[in-house]
Design a protein around this nucleic acid. Structure first.
Lengths: 230, 230
DNA sequence: CCAAAAGTGTTCAACATACACCCATGA
DNA sequence: TCATGGGTGTATGTTGAACACTTTTGG
């Protein structure tokens, strides 16, 4: 039993998962934060513990579902954070995930002892532990990722207009794209299907709705555009 | 002590680190593998356990140093792997790092019960656990990273020639770049300093040595080129 | 003098950028 | 009819890709 002995000599560690949940309300890019209970007045990412039966991704998805009711959302591993003192009480390794959700689908399933709120990424409160580092990294990753892969749509409803999409990209990159170039670039991917229906109520003229061509979406995950603010 | 109780209810897990160590011998891109002891005949990545005093990155660097004698090498976190059955004996979370080393600096410090060998990334043996997944991901990351950031130099000696650098990129992307375009592209970054000295012995004419302009190197980590095989 | 690798320039196509006007509609 | 946002085209510059010949020098 030499092999087992080798394992038994090792220290085990607590393993947490924390998620940076991005949402878009039509105007600005937000992340969902929770404030924990009464003794803790600090805003924090949504998180939880790894259970013995789960993979890391399963655990992140479960925690997201338990706290928000959202399932089948975009979820991607961001980074493992393991500074010895990141959690001052007990040493904990945290694997951070970032997630893109459609805000309209969100309904809080948080129990009464939690509060949850959307915060603009440009106006965040002080955060627990190293959560601010996680958020910084997540924003960088989102910017990189959205430039290369068609993931922006994960933040919009099934049907959306080009102006809505442009506003989303404006928010992600904190800039203002040229609407003519933007529209040409996006449509040149052939990833969008134009619908008959127009958006009502927002503008006089109304903008055409589009939806993602899901048959092309899978392949396109690998080659996309190159949006960088100009 | 409500808070501490909350921690105490949680399961702890073993935490390992595994490193994909890339090296370049002038012809092909290799990774360093070890075969463990006598009972285990499977090739494996270099790995070890997280110690209580270490951060994840410190642990990865220590393990690398202990096994190879290399310090101050390029090291970047790749991904955390946590499938419940990835290690069939004891559940272990592994955080994988990838590393770029100068092969000439490498000297094995492996104890007698280990063997180590460089393998071409295009001709790998079967690997332990999920190490093959780690390697696949590391190669993808290296390709992405080397296209955007000036990290290729980490795999070459201090002084190197443009043809050597081209061979490296050929190996990374498993293609053949046009030497005229390659040289123009690389030199246009202004990241290389041309030396007086020429390489002797390899070709009749001899190629000029270059070295990285370290003053510009730091900044350039953020904006670089865009190499994709054509 | 010849073989082998090093070094260099031009042309063309594709793409990114900058920029301005007309359209449709509800009030 | 007018105010508001939606929709489209063109000209220009930059960048990437394709491609071939001359140079150097050791044998």
């Amino acid at each position: 039993m030499l092999v087992l002995d080798q394992y038994k000599q090792q220290h085990p560690y607590l393993l947490a998962l924390d998620s940076i949940i991005f949402g878009f309300d039509g105007e600005s890019l937000k992340i969902l934060l929770v404030k924990r209970g009464t003794e803790n007045t600090t805003w924090s990412l949504m998180g939880g513990w790894l259970q013995p039966s789960e993979s890391l991704e399963e655990a992140a998805a479960r925690i997201l579902f338990d706290l928000t009711g959202l399932a089948n959302v975009y979820l991607e591993q961001l980074h493992a954070f393991g500074d010895p003192h990141r959690d001052p009480i007990v040493r904990t390794i945290s694997v951070a995930y970032f997630s893109l959700v459609k805000v309209a689908d969100y309904e809080s399933k948080l129990s009464g002892t939690f509060q949850a709120r959307w915060f603009s990424i440009y106006d965040l409160p002080p955060l627990l532990f190293d959560h601010a580092d996680m958020v910084d990294l997540a924003i960088k990753r989102l910017r990189y990722k959205a430039a290369q892969h068609p993931i922006g749509f994960e933040l919009l409803p099934e049907k959306f207009t080009i102006p809505q999409l442009k506003k989303l990209y404006d928010a992600i990159y904190n800039t203002e794209f040229d609407k003519r170039n933007f529209s040409r670039k996006i449509l040149s991917t052939n990833l969008l299907i134009k619908l008959e229906e127009k958006q009502k109520g927002f503008s006089r003229k109304g903008a055409y709705y589009y939806q993602v061509d899901k048959s092309k979406y899978q392949q396109a995950t690998d080659s996309f555009l190159n949006f960088i603010p100009s």
